[in-house]
Structures are given as C-alpha cells and as structure tokens.
Amino acid sequence: MAVTLTVNGTTRQVDADPETPLLYVLRDHLELNGAKYGCGIGQCGACTVMVGNEAVLSCVTPVLLLEGRSITTVEGLGTLEKPGPLQQAFIEEQAAQCGYCIPGMMMRAQALLQADPAVDEAAIRAHLEPNLCRCGTHMRIIKAVMRAGELMRQKSQSGGAS
C-alpha cells in the first residue's frame, strides 16, 4: 500500500503499510538516519522529528496520520557541508558524546526555538524533559540550544534588515 509523505520538503511515495510507525518509514524506506530507535514506546525521545511545527515521537506515530503533513528530520536542518544554525551550535558547543540521542534532542529543540528563539534556560530544560541522554551531555545540550537561539535571532535580524 502506498503512503504519500512530505519529508524535508520533498514529497515521497512510500510503499509501506499505513500502520507502520513513521520511524521505520524514515529509516528503512527513506534511508534517513537522524531519527533513532530508542524504546519504541515514547519514553526516551531518540526518535523525535517535527511534524509541522511540533516535536513528535516518530516511533509511536503511524504514517496513516501523516498524509499531507510536513515532516522534518535532522537531515532537513542542514548538511555536513552547510550545517544549519542548530547543527552549528551543537558542533560549536561540542554537545555530543555518543551522539545517539542528539538528533532527537535537536528536533525537540528546533520546535521550541522555532516558536520562540529567545526562550530561556528554564524553558529549555522543561521542554527537553521527555528526551533522555545516558552519556550525561545535558549541560552542553542546554548551552547549544541557547546558542542556536542566538544564532537564529541574529539570522532573523539580519534577514529583516536586508
């Protein structure tokens, strides 16, 4: 059965059972690596992606809910050659150890920063609560999200001036 999904701006036909969780369609059919399998039951956040402007747990979201919706994964934020502001911030703050949880963290942070790039540290901590990190990289992740907020504000200011 075919499902039509819009992922990182591209509309794709996927030959998958509509009950398949988005995670497996992203990884297995579309060969995107950002979203990770962590628990499969929505407890750890490693699979977080964005649907529209919201952070969503792709491991518990069947694709049948997503016809016509816009899905963004960490691959949609930038590339190795041209990292986006959030990716840049995570590199600058060296905010990863094993890095397995990081794309999920980034997508939840992206949703937060898109809504309010001036968000404060307390709000970042509260917002990231559903996402687990086992290496203990939390302090750097918080710093990276703060820095990304700054980068985004700078970008939107310079964008506004041009």
Binding site: I41, G42, Q43, V51, G52, E54, V56, T61
Partner: peptide
C-alpha cells in the same frame, strides 16, 4: 507510568 502525547500529530 509514562504515556506519550499526541498533540503534535492528531
């Protein structure tokens, strides 16, 4: 217990 939220998707 933990349950994920579906606010962002439904």
């Amino acid at each position: 217990a933990i349950m994920p939220a579906y606010r962002g998707v439904l």
